[in-house]
Design a binder for these strands. Structure first.
Length: 481
RNA sequence: CGCGGGGUGGAGCAGUGGUAGCUCGUCAGGCUCAUAACCUGAAGGUCAGACGUUCGAAUCGUCUCCCCGCAACCA
């Protein structure tokens, strides 16, 4: 039996601060990782930062930093984020890491040996000011908008990847594994994209144009184009090229990514893997896009972006985690809403869960009962286990949003049960009260388990409070300025 | 006709052929163990509009209107 589980996020490009979209992806991944660990899987959870490329080089210049200093600075911001939000990664990989650079070159060579990398002259419109090729779409009135200059026709030799060769194998992969990409609509997108025909794409740049990148093996004038190197991190991190045994243990991977990254992860990367003789990924999970409160896209230009660090300050890590998992559909777009966040916190965490915990602990203490699992009625127990099973089913298919609904239902069931049983009523016998409270204690322990991937901190406190029978305000009133 | 997503009670969302459902809010009642919490019940929707297919449509088809994304920062 294979009890290992390997999960990764996409590596964000470190040309700015972490934003809410990164938060969503990292937290989703963390919840899955914690869930799998709880279930007994040996889990490897990878995340990190993508740090090469021209943009990085230019941005560093703008801030008067060397490229390395620049990426160090922003990579650290992502690490800070992970720490603040309890992201339990096993490795935080940086594409500037030594082992990654080696692995990217090994991967390149493998693909080259397989005949999928070739050199070709590329002719295009080149803006001298930007020192980069422009496409028609980049231009305004035929001119580069940044330099107000017409780009020149320019030709250079670059390496290309034979993407076109993988059309059939990719379609085959999509056909054979209908849940390869989730949700199904995103798989459909790939089927029509790949089915429409594939063009080979350029995977290197001349070093003089792109000084910040990984060298192409045996060609000092060329560096790898950023994302070719970036994608390889998913195999680097588990020992590709350095530790085959370790690699075999973990591969294939379950990957999370944003909707705009579908092509890279589900098509190009899969073709690259085939080229290097590696099995495809296990799943590509595509989360939704978080929109601004008014339903439009968040954008730095408009200035309506929500910062996870602000949410941390206002609501704390656990409430934010809970909202991102339980308040918005796992695979669908949805607007960010402060009201919704506060509502979920209050209704689900303070009232449904925290209050239930507290009232049960109080009553156990007051009645001085000795609870025991053997006293619980079968019908009660099976109802609890039934809700747990539905939770598990959704978690196993990575639908965190649907899974959490069943945790909420379990809490409600506890609240209904306690009202129906009235353990405080004077005509209740000691046996009856003991049975009721044993059941509730059992339910709470299960509930804590279901919530623990999302609320690791609160659940640990809850567990200990229940064990020691100490009253506790698990979710205090939010102090909102 | 560029492509795609969407328009469901006050708000946010489920629901892809067979009596319209969930959370919040509102109203009424109950309970008192608890973080003014918890439980029960009620009101509230011609499922954007029109036509069509069907014994039967929110769900399928055609057309119309409206919102959003696909170009930039970016998950």
């Amino acid at each position: 039996m294979n009890d290992s589980f390997y999960l990764t996020t996409t590596l964000p490009y470190v040309n700015g601060e972490p934003h809410i979209g990164h938060a969503l992806e990292f937290i989703q991944a963390d919840v899955i990782a914690r869930y799998k660990r709880n279930k007994g899987f040996t889990t490897y959870f990878n995340t990190g930062t993508d740090e090469h490329g021209l943009k990085m080089y230019q941005k560093a210049g703008e801030e008067n930093l060397s490229p390395q200093e620049y990426v160090d600075k922003y990579s650290q911001r992502f690490k800070d984020f992970c720490k603040s939000f309890s992201i339990s990664y096993d490795r935080f990989i940086r594409t500037t890491d030594e082992d990654h650079i080696k692995a990217a070159q090994t991967f390149w060579n493998k693909s080259l040996e397989n005949g999928d990398i070739y050199k070709k002259a590329y002719t295009g419109l080149y803006c001298v000011g930007c020192e980069e090729f422009k496409t028609e779409k980049d231009l305004v009135d035929g001119k580069c908008p940044d330099h107000n200059k017409e780009p020149e026709e320019h030709s250079e030799e670059n390496y290309f990847f034979k993407f076109s060769r993988y059309q059939e194998p990719l379609l085959d992969l999509y056909k054979k594994q209908s849940d390869f990409v989730k949700p199904a609509s995103k798989l459909q997108e790939m089927i029509s994209f790949v089915g429409g025909g594939l063009q080979d794409f350029s995977i290197s740049r001349r070093r003089e144009n792109l000084p910040w990148g990984i060298s192409v093996p045996n060609d000092p004038d060329q560096v790898m184009y950023v994302w070719f190197d970036a994608l390889v991190n998913y195999v680097t991190t588990i020992g590709y090229g350095t530790n085959e045994k370790e690699f075999e243990k973990w591969w294939p991977v379950v990957q999370l990514c944003g909707p705009d990254n579908n092509r890279f992860q589900s098509a190009m990367w899969q073709a690259m893997l085939m080229s290097a003789g590696i099995k495809p990924s296990k799943h590509i999970l595509i989360h939704g896009m978080i929109l601004a409160e008014d339903g439009t896209k968040m954008s730095k230009t408009i200035g309506n972006v929500v910062s996870p660090f602000e949410l941390l300050e206002t609501y704390g890590a656990e409430a934010t985690r809970y909202y991102l998992i339980s308040g918005i559909p796992t695979f669908g777009d949805s607007s960010f809403s402060h009201d919704q966040l506060e509502m979920k916190y209050k209704a689900d965490l303070q009232n449904n869960f925290g209050n239930l915990l507290n009232r049960v602990i109080t009553m156990i203490n007051k009645k001085e009962v000795d609870t025991s699992e053997s006293l619980i009625s079968e019908s009660f127990k099976s109802e609890v286990l039934n809700l747990k099973a539905r939770y598990t089913e959704h978690m196993d298919s990575f639908d965190l949003f649907e899974a959490m609904k069943n945790a909420q239902k379990l809490g409600s069931y506890g609240n209904v049960y306690i009202t129906e049983q009235e353990p405080w009523a004077k005509d209740k016998t000691e046996e009856e009260i003991t049975e009721t409270l044993s059941g509730l204690e059992y339910l709470l322990n299960e509930l804590i388990e279901l919530y623990s991937p999302v609320l690791p901190d609160a659940c640990e406190k809850a567990k200990s409070a229940l064990l020691k029978r100490e009253n506790i305000i698990l979710f205090p009133e939010l102090e909102i300025a």
